[in-house]
């Protein structure tokens, strides 16, 4: 049973989280251990299992990113696996692999890491460069902005995915899947950068 099926939902990504919450509370009451206290042990165990599945399903589906990742997982997409396969294809074809992280973002990330290293060294040496700190604050704001923008782009892909589910258009489904994989990768890259800058500025 998929997490979508737990809530009787189709495998779509645009989701009414308020309605999801309501269903969650209703189903939670239904499987609440107290209601099975006087029931046979097997029934109690079954209710506990359902209750735990329900909790996992709710926690996953209410979070937009985890929901997308989960859907891709049920579709057989493994983000890391894809990267390894793409490298193997590039080697076989004698071509360059298409990078998931766009070149300009990589340039920025590299530059940012150089600055972070500088700041760490300055800190270790006992001084704090205010200009460097300012630059890093600006970089953090920039990457946070990109992170938010990627979320919007991801939501646009949800619309494409949901429409393709309705029409049963497998080509469109695959296209949306590929886009979502690329966006999730980009996102996790940005998130790591923001985290690193944040840690260095602490």
């Amino acid at each position: 049973m998929t997490y979508f099926e737990v809530f009787g939902l189709p495998p779509k990504l645009q989701l009414d989280t308020a309605a999801l919450e309501k269903s969650f509370y209703r189903l939670s009451r239904e499987f609440h251990p107290d209601r099975f206290a006087s029931k046979p042990a097997e029934e109690q165990a079954a209710a506990t299992e359902k209750s735990s599945l329900l909790n996992d399903a709710y926690r996953t589906l209410r979070d937009p990113i985890r929901r997308t990742e989960y859907l891709l997982e049920t579709e057989g997409v493994e983000l890391e696996e894809q990267s390894v396969k793409a490298t193997e294809r590039a080697r076989a074809a004698g071509e360059q692999k298409k990078q998931i992280v766009p070149p300009d973002l990589l340039e920025e990330a590299f530059e940012l890491n150089m600055q972070l290293e500088e700041l760490k060294m300055a800190k270790a040496g006992g001084d704090d460069d205010p200009q460097l700190r300012k630059d890093l604050e600006a970089a953090k704001a920039n990457f946070t902005g990109l992170l938010h923008a990627s979320q919007k782009q991801l939501e646009a892909e949800w619309t494409s995915w949901d429409a393709a589910v309705d029409t049963g258009d497998n080509g469109a489904k695959d296209a949306a899947k590929d886009e979502m994989v690329a966006l999730l990768n980009r996102r996790s890259y940005l998130r790591n950068l923001v985290r690193d800058v944040h840690a260095a500025l602490e």
Binding site: L105, L106, A109, F110, N113, R186, S188, Y189, L193
Partner: peptide, 13 residues
């Protein structure tokens, strides 16, 4: 060559 790994935020030149 400048490449990055989205899984961990690594960047390699």
């Amino acid at each position: 060559g400048l490449v990055g790994a989205p899984e961990c935020g690594d960047v390699m030149r």
